[in-house]
Nucleic acid binder design. Structure first.
Length: 510
RNA sequence: GUCCCCUUCGUCUAGAGGCCUAGGACUCCAGGUUUUCAUCCUGGCAACAGGGGUUCGACUCCCCUAGGGGACGCCA
C-alpha cells in the first residue's frame, strides 16, 4: 500500500501505475452488479497503490437521468467505496461524464472516417430490423450487411449536406479471427464474421458504448479493465478500435456474472437488485461488500469475514473463480447478522438511528400518520410494514367479498409486471398504471388496489397505498407483490397465461 | 440458430499431479447451553457432470460429449 510512486508526478509516473474504473450507466437504480464490479476494481487498484476512477456512461440520452446518477453516487458512498477521480471529486482526465465529452468522440470518429476505418450509414431502423430478422431466420449471426459501404464520396457528402439522418459505423475485417487475452482465461479467439459493423456515433451525435469506452479508457489512462463477462464478445470491436487509433490495449479482466437462483444473469425481475434495496432492508454496507467479496473470490487463508481493506491487502486475480456465483440472500443474511451482533450496544443504536428510526426518514410519513393517531403509541403499528424487508402474509388475507381469487391474482401479476418495467418511480405514474389496469379488469380502483394493499402491508388497514409505494421504493414494493403472487400459488401454466394476457393488454394500449 | 465463456456438496468456496478417506462456510437435521425464542457450542447429511486420453499416479493437464451462462441493438 505504501508505493513510493504514489507521490510521483504524472510525467514521471511509470506506465505500470495501476488505474481502474467503473463506468455505470445512470439508467435506473444502482445495481448490485455495479457494486460488485466497483468492489473488485477498487480492491485491485488499492492493492497496487493505484487509482480508482468513476466515469458516468450517459450516452443513452433517452434513458439516462441525473436522478439515477445521484443514486449511484449515494450508493457508492453508502458502501464506502470512494473514488480518486470522477464526477464531484474531479481529476486531471475529466470531464468524467460522457455526455460532456461529445467533441472528443466526434474528433476521434472523424479521424477514423478519414482513414476509411469508419463510414457513414443512412440505413433506416426499419430496414435494419428486417435485415436482422431475415438473417436470424437463415440461422446466421445478425449483422450489418454493408449496404452503405459502397456509397460514393460525392453522394455521401450530398446526403449529409441535405441533413439526412445518419450514423457512423466502423469497418470490420470480413475474414480471420480476432485474438486477445483475458487475464483470467488466457487467449480467446473470435472469428471476425461474428463481429458486426458497430455503430460508433449515433444519429443524435452521441457515441455508442463501444466508441466511448475505448476512447475514454485510453484518454483516462486506464490500465486494467475489470468488468462483467458479458463484455467478452465485444472485445474484438474494442481491439479493432485500439488498433485503428494505434493505442495499446489495457489488461482485460472479465469477472463472472452474478446469478439468480435459477442461474440466469441476476435480474431485477427475479430478485431485488438495487443497492438501495439492501440499504432499506436493513443490511450493513460492510456486510454486503463482504458478501460480494466472497462471490468468485476467496481470501488466501479462507476466512470468510473480512473488510474491504483486508480484501484489497490480499487481493490477487489468481484467486478469482470463474463459475457464475448465485447471489444467495440467506448467506448474506447470516453474514449481516454476524456484523450486527459484533457491534457494541452504542454502535448498534447508532446504526438503527442512521438506518430508519430517525426524524429525517420518517418525516414524509408524518402528515399521513398524524391524522390517524389518537395516542403516540399508535405510531409503531402504523409504520411497521414500511420499515422492514418483507411482511408476513397469509392467503386468507387476500379473501375479498367481491373480487374473485383470479381477479386478485391478475391484479397482482399485471401490476407487478408493469412496475418491473418502470425506470422512474413516480407517484403519478404508479397511479396511472393502476387506473389503466383497473379499467382493463373492469374493477373499481379501490377493488383493484385491495390485493396490492395486502401484499404490501399484510393487512387491508394501512397508510395510503401509493404513498406507501413511494416510500418503499421500487425493489421493496416489487418484492412484496411477488411474494403475494407466490403465496397465492401460481403454477407455471397460470403464469404463462397471465404473462400473455398482460402482453396483450400492453399491446392494446400501445 | 451462430459464436464465446464456464462446470468441486442444494448454495458460496479450498484445492495449482501424489498432502484428498476431497477441507471450510451457509442451509438442513440431531444433541447441548438458554425460563421461551434467538445467539452460541457439539455432531451429522451432502460434491470432483460423463467418457476418453497423458502419467507410475489425476479434482488438478489434453480431447470429446452433455449441461449451464452470455453475446448477437443508433442499450450499456
Amino acid at each position: 500500500m505504501t508505493n513510493p510512486t504514489d507521490s510521483a508526478s504524472p510525467q514521471t509516473a511509470p506506465p505500470t501505475a495501476v488505474r481502474t474504473r467503473i463506468a455505470p450507466s445512470p439508467t435506473g437504480d444502482p445495481h448490485v452488479g455495479t457494486a460488485y464490479m466497483a468492489l473488485f476494481n477498487w480492491a485491485f487498484a488499492k492493492h497496487h497503490g493505484g487509482q480508482f476512477v468513476v466515469r458516468i456512461e450517459d450516452t443513452d440520452a433517452a434513458r439516462s437521468s441525473s436522478a439515477s446518477e445521484t443514486k449511484i453516487f449515494d450508493a457508492l458512498r453508502w458502501l464506502g467505496l470512494s473514488w480518486d477521480e470522477g464526477p464531484i471529486v474531479g481529476g486531471p482526465a475529466g470531464p468524467y461524464r460522457q455526455s460532456e465529452r461529445l467533441p472528443i468522440y466526434r474528433e476521434h470518429v472523424d479521424q477514423l472516417i478519414a482513414a476509411e476505418q469508419a463510414f457513414p450509414c443512412f440505413c433506416t431502423s426499419q430496414r435494419l430490423d428486417e435485415m436482422r430478422s431475415q438473417q436470424r431466420e437463415r440461422g446466421e449471426t445478425s449483422g450489418y450487411d454493408g449496404a452503405c459501404l459502397g456509397l460514393g464520396a460525392a453522394e455521401v457528402e450530398q446526403r449529409i449536406a441535405a441533413g439526412e439522418s445518419h450514423v457512423i459505423r466502423m469497418r470490420v475485417p470480413t475474414e480471420g479471427d480476432c485474438e486477445f487475452r483475458d487475464e483470467l482465461r488466457g487467449e480467446i479467439s473470435i472469428p471476425f464474421t461474428q463481429i458486426d459493423m458497430q455503430v460508433l456515433l449515433k444519429a443524435d451525435g452521441f457515441p455508442t458504448y463501444h466508441l466511448a469506452v475505448v476512447v475514454d479508457d485510453h484518454l483516462m489512462g486506464i490500465t486494467h479493465v475489470i468488468r462483467g463477462e458479458e463484455w467478452i464478445n465485444s472485445v474484438p470491436k474494442h481491439k479493432l478500435l485500439y488498433d485503428y487509433f494505434g493505442w495499446p490495449m489495457p489488461t482485460l479482466v472479465h469477472m463472472p456474472l452474478l446469478r439468480n437462483p435459477d442461474s440466469s444473469k441476476l435480474s431485477k425481475r427475479k430478485n431485488p437488485t438495487s443497492v438501495t434495496y439492501y440499504e432499506r432492508a436493513g443490511y450493513l454496507p460492510e456486510a454486503l461488500l463482504n458478501y460480494l467479496g466472497t462471490m468468485g473470490w476467496s481470501m488466501p487463508d479462507e476466512r470468510e469475514i473480512f473488510s474491504i481493506q483486508e480484501m484489497s491487502e490480499h487481493f490477487d486475480l489468481e484467486r478469482v473463480t470463474l463459475g457464475g456465483p448465485i447471489f444467495d440472500p440467506v448467506k448474506l443474511g447470516w453474514l449481516n447478522g454476524q456484523y450486527l451482533r459484533s457491534l457494541s450496544p452504542e454502535a448498534f443504536m447508532q446504526r438503527v438511528a442512521d438506518w430508519a428510526i430517525n426524524t429525517d426518514h420518517l418525516a414524509p410519513l408524518v402528515p399521513l400518520i398524524q391524522q390517524r393517531t389518537e395516542r403516540l403509541a399508535d405510531l409503531a403499528p402504523q409504520v411497521d410494514y414500511l420499515l422492514g424487508d418483507r411482511v408476513a402474509l397469509t392467503a386468507e388475507a387476500f379473501a375479498h367479498k367481491k373480487m374473485t381469487p383470479e381477479q386478485c391474482v391478475a391484479a397482482l401479476h399485471h401490476y407487478s409486471s408493469a412496475l418491473d418495467e418502470l425506470r422512474i418511480w413516480d407517484r403519478e405514474v404508479l397511479v396511472e398504471l393502476a387506473e389503466g389496469l383497473a379499467k382493463h379488469q373492469e374493477l373499481k380502483l379501490s377493488e383493484f388496489l385491495f390485493p396490492i394493499f395486502i401484499a404490501l402491508a399484510g393487512r387491508s388497514v394501512a397508510l395510503p397505498v401509493f404513498d406507501s409505494m413511494v416510500f418503499l421504493g421500487s425493489d421493496l414494493t416489487r418484492v412484496r407483490l411477488r411474494d403475494g403472487l407466490q403465496l397465492l400459488g401460481l403454477s407455471k401454466k397460470q403464469t404463462k397465461k397471465l404473462d400473455k394476457a398482460y402482453l396483450a393488454y400492453v399491446q392494446s394500449t400501445g
